[in-house]
């Protein structure tokens, strides 16, 4: 029984990180209809920037948190302004290719500026052990679950009540009509990119704090893909739940079957979901009119 509880707890913790990245995927998809293939790389870049910041100015938790948010927002806005907005009106696939190009650039930039070796993130508080019942958890794991919960509530309220949230839903529904109704779609998209990068950045920092920082952590983006698909690419809250489910599935297959199956379980899941229900568990079904 304790075994199952342990598996569940760590599964939720890693799932929360996937969930955060999946939310970032969904935010961009919802407002612009494209998948940001550089999402994992954005998370990595923010993590590296934060690592550099912590190395320079100390790893006080509040300082690190504020810097992460600022770095994520700025990075998101810069990407949107420089690369995405000029591509407006081009076929979606061209823009997706732009994000693939961006992914390649960010990966190499990290190697160019810093180095290829793994380093400790330097946030000691994250790896402290917390005893809950009879299981040990790292403080960072508990924190990321809490962060995910908080962001879930915040984004629910955002889409429900805030002006931008409602505008974003309108743009997602039908961007031309939204534009006609006086919604500034460009600004909505900028906000979506900023929010998406910030959330991804937080996930990147949490991941790096738990598993060290190294130039291959962009792969959490790949792991979060299945989560976003499962939850529904246009469902921000659904994607977060998708993350938890993927984390749990990984840990259960790893705990009861074998570790190699664990690593591809996500991709098998993608294929399964797409074959049966392409819009995911919580996504809106797309209806195509001729």
């Amino acid at each position: 029984m304790n075994y199952l509880i342990q598996l569940t707890a760590t599964g939720i913790a890693i799932g929360a990180i996937y969930g955060l990245i999946a939310m970032a995927f969904a935010l961009v998809y919802k407002s612009t209809g494209l998948i940001n293939f550089a999402q994992g790389e954005v998370a990595m870049m923010v993590a590296y920037l934060t690592w550099a910041f912590a190395g320079q100015f100390g790893s006080g938790l509040i300082g690190v948190a504020v810097f992460t948010i600022v770095a994520g927002m700025v990075l998101g806005l810069v990407i949107e302004r420089l690369l995405i907005r000029p591509m407006m009106g081009e076929p979606i696939f061209s823009i997706v290719l732009v994000t693939i190009g961006l992914a390649v650039i960010l990966r190499s930039l990290v190697l160019l500026i810093w180095d290829a070796s793994p380093h400790p993130m330097g946030i000691e508080a994250a790896s402290e052990l917390i005893r809950i019942g009879n299981l040990n958890m790292r403080a960072g794991q508990v924190f990321v679950i809490g962060l995910m919960g908080a962001l879930l509530v915040a984004s629910w309220a955002f889409f429900r009540y805030s002006r931008y949230g409602i505008a974003m839903r309108a743009v997602a529904d039908d961007d031309r009509t939204a534009l006609l109704m006086g919604v500034n779609t460009a600004r909505v998209q900028a906000v979506a990119w900023a929010a998406s990068s910030t959330i991804a950045g937080m996930a990147g920092v949490c991941f790096a704090a738990l598993y060290d920082i190294s130039p291959d952590i962009y792969s959490i983006g790949l792991k979060a893909f299945p989560a976003a698909i499962l939850g529904g690419l246009d469902a921000v809250l659904g994607s977060a739940f998708g993350g938890i489910i993927v984390g749990l599935i990984e840990n259960m297959t790893g705990g009861y079957m074998s570790s190699t199956i664990k690593e591809i379980s996500g991709f098998v899941l993608i294929v399964g979901v797409l074959m049966i229900r392409p819009s995911g568990l919580f996504g809106q079904r797309e209806i195509e009119r001729v």
Partner: peptide, 9 residues
């Protein structure tokens, strides 16, 4: 690799 990315974009 950066050049790859820049050229694609």
């Amino acid at each position: 690799n950066i050049l790859y990315g820049v050229i694609i974009i």
